[in-house]
Design a protein around this nucleic acid. Sequence first.
DNA 1: GACACCTTACTAACCGGTAAGTAGAGTGGG
DNA 2: CCCACTCTACTTACCGGTTAGTAAGGTGTC
Lengths: 217, 217
Amino acid sequence: MNDPHAARQDTRKKILDLAEALWLGRGFNSFSYQHISRELGVKNAAIHYHYPRKTDLGVALIERYRRRFGRFAEAQAGLDPREQLEQYFGLTDAYHDQDGQICPSGVLSSDFPTLPDEMQQAAQAFVAEMRTWAVAILREGRERGVMQYPGSPEAMGELVFAALQGALQLARLDRTALPAIKQQVRCLLGFADAEPHHEEDHDNTKKSHEPHRRQGE
Amino acid sequence: MNDPHAARQDTRKKILDLAEALWLGRGFNSFSYQHISRELGVKNAAIHYHYPRKTDLGVALIERYRRRFGRFAEAQAGLDPREQLEQYFGLTDAYHDQDGQICPSGVLSSDFPTLPDEMQQAAQAFVAEMRTWAVAILREGRERGVMQYPGSPEAMGELVFAALQGALQLARLDRTALPAIKQQVRCLLGFADAEPHHEEDHDNTKKSHEPHRRQGE
DNA sequence: GACACCTTACTAACCGGTAAGTAGAGTGGG
DNA sequence: CCCACTCTACTTACCGGTTAGTAAGGTGTC
């Protein structure tokens, strides 16, 4: 231990981690450098040292998440599409259980008009990736014959993606919204053997369903 | 003219109208009294005269919208459920075409954790009404035999509602999202005769689709 | 003169951001 | 081995601007 670069990476990562929780929990414009510095026990200017402008922090948040998501998508590529969908659902649960966070695409599209140009561009690229990934699951599901639905995989993928994004937000006002919508998506895809009643709240002890969180830089 | 109460109502209404556009376009925390007063040609304190705290303005926004929505829902009650759905779609188009606004439920659920208590309660009641209304359309559609879908009307209503909310937000980053998702909803409900290709952007000159906007107080 | 409706003038807190200084660890030269 | 230097990672002390909010005063109308 006592890695010379440990301290640097440590604070830098802590800033990003804390900023991410605030970002997904409150939105980009509703947290300040003070929220981070106070919690972290450092001064405001220390944050500015690592991320000079808030825009820099915002872009870093998007880019880190994008890389993390890329690894997640790659790791589950080739899996049974239905299992991929369930992992997707598990992700949404993990968000919600973490103080009612919402997914990055939800917070990005909500805040979009108020974001600086650099963040808008990063957001567009990132959200496009996520939507493409959702479409791919639905396409593969039909090709392999494990999902049945009308319309194109593109349209169905976009719809499921939008529905989950909306469900996570609505779950802040009424927690029953999220499981109900997930169940209906299963239903629409022809999963007759979907969970018998309601899995209800998070007594899903079956898996950790916290598929990414880790990594530096 | 020269109604004694005209001036009062006038400024008061102008404030609310402007606040509403800013609210749906940027979110509750991303507009200030300055945005309103500057545009309106009055001083900041004039807004505080009508709405002492920003919370008062926020609650007034929700309550007004709730009344307006109540009239809208009542006016279309008894209509063909499919036509009701199309009017709902027309509403989403109207939002989007107005500088990329999103629906009230979308902005409320996004901002929710940062809102004051009074607004949170008003928001929960209002969004619950909207969701109930969406469910009613889907239920009636099945009862009358004009819509076919698996699962319960409750679950399907929630899903459609969440999907439209998400679609409106995503349309800010990619305008193709909204028509694609609307079309897929039609598709899922068994509307085989749905518009042949893509209605695409707003060349829908067929109707004004701006179903409410008016009223004082 | 009472009241509705506004303005002027102000406050304290917070916002993102900057400049200058410093503690400490690492490094190269003699 | 030690001194001089550099670099990273901060702190202290600001800046101008914006935020919501208030108090007091003015003006027109009934």
